[in-house]
Simulated assay, not measured.
Amino acid sequence: MSDLTFPPEHAPRSIYVFALDIEPVELPAWEPEGAAADWPLPAALGVESLDPEQVEVFPSDRIAEYGLARYLTEANGMSPESVAQSAQTLEAQTGIIALVHSRAVAGKDGHFDPAHPARFIGRFSEKASLTASVPPSAPETSIGVISGGATPDAPTPFPWRIILIALIALVVLGGLLWSLA
């Protein structure tokens, strides 16, 4: 039952996985998109309410090529260690799957108490990291001035010389054409 208890606020982020024994035609009523007051998922999981933005409900065949275990680790950031023990069970799931992120019950005390048609599959957590990241030290070759890019020099003056030479060339050309005519 401890896997069904809502984790304290300081616990790592978790995902609760449930199977829903419903027919595919019933799926739209269970999906969190546009969840109404009569959304059946919270009651089936034994909770008062869920944040629908933190819940995913989908047919298992939607991620069949990817796999549920891989979906939890790679797409949802769950620790591979927390998923590894249940990988075979996760991959054997067929039908409708409900993923409830711990934020769906954030700030609430209690536990899930699933009843038909919901079945608890497992709770998976991200890897907790309490170490501060230290920026890498710069090699000595990178110390100094960065060359290239914009410089704070004065703007380039307008090319009056080029315009003057072009104007003189036009006058000479015009004079030559006038004399030939």
Score class of each variant (00 low, 15 high):
G110K: 00
A115R: 15
A118P: 03
S102T: 11
V100R: 00
A118V: 00
H10L: 15
E53Y: 09
I168Y: 01
V145L: 09
L170G: 15
E23T: 13
Y16R: 07
G46N: 07
S2M: 11
A138P: 01
L50K: 01
V134A: 11
G175Y: 12
L68I: 05
Q85G: 10
S14E: 05
P136D: 11
R62K: 13
F158D: 07
W39Y: 02
F120E: 09
A169P: 05
P152G: 13
V47I: 03
P32Q: 03
H111Q: 11
W30T: 02
G46A: 02
P135S: 08
T151K: 14
A43F: 00
G175A: 13
E53D: 12
I97Y: 03
R62W: 10
P59D: 13
T141N: 08
N76S: 01
F6M: 11
F112M: 03
S147N: 13
G95H: 00
I143T: 02
S142A: 14
E31D: 09
A75Q: 15
Y71C: 03
F112R: 02
L41V: 03
L4K: 05
S86I: 00
I162M: 08
P139W: 13
S14I: 12
S137C: 11
D61E: 14
I163D: 09
W178A: 00
H116M: 11
A11F: 13
A11Q: 08
G122V: 02
L27H: 07
I146G: 02
F58Q: 01
F6K: 04
V171R: 02
V145D: 10
G149Q: 08
F18H: 09
S147K: 14
P136F: 06
V134S: 14
A106F: 15
L45A: 06
E65M: 12
I146K: 03
P42K: 09
E31P: 03
E53P: 05
A36F: 00
W30G: 06
V172M: 07
I121N: 06
P135C: 10
G34F: 04
T94V: 14
Y16E: 11
G175K: 13
L50T: 07
A181W: 14
A84V: 04
G144H: 12
S82E: 11
D51A: 09
A37K: 12
P8M: 08
F6S: 09
E91A: 13
A43P: 03
I165Y: 10
A64L: 04
A128M: 07
A106Q: 14
A29G: 10
D61K: 10
L177G: 09
F58R: 09
E126F: 08
R103N: 06
A92N: 07
D51P: 05
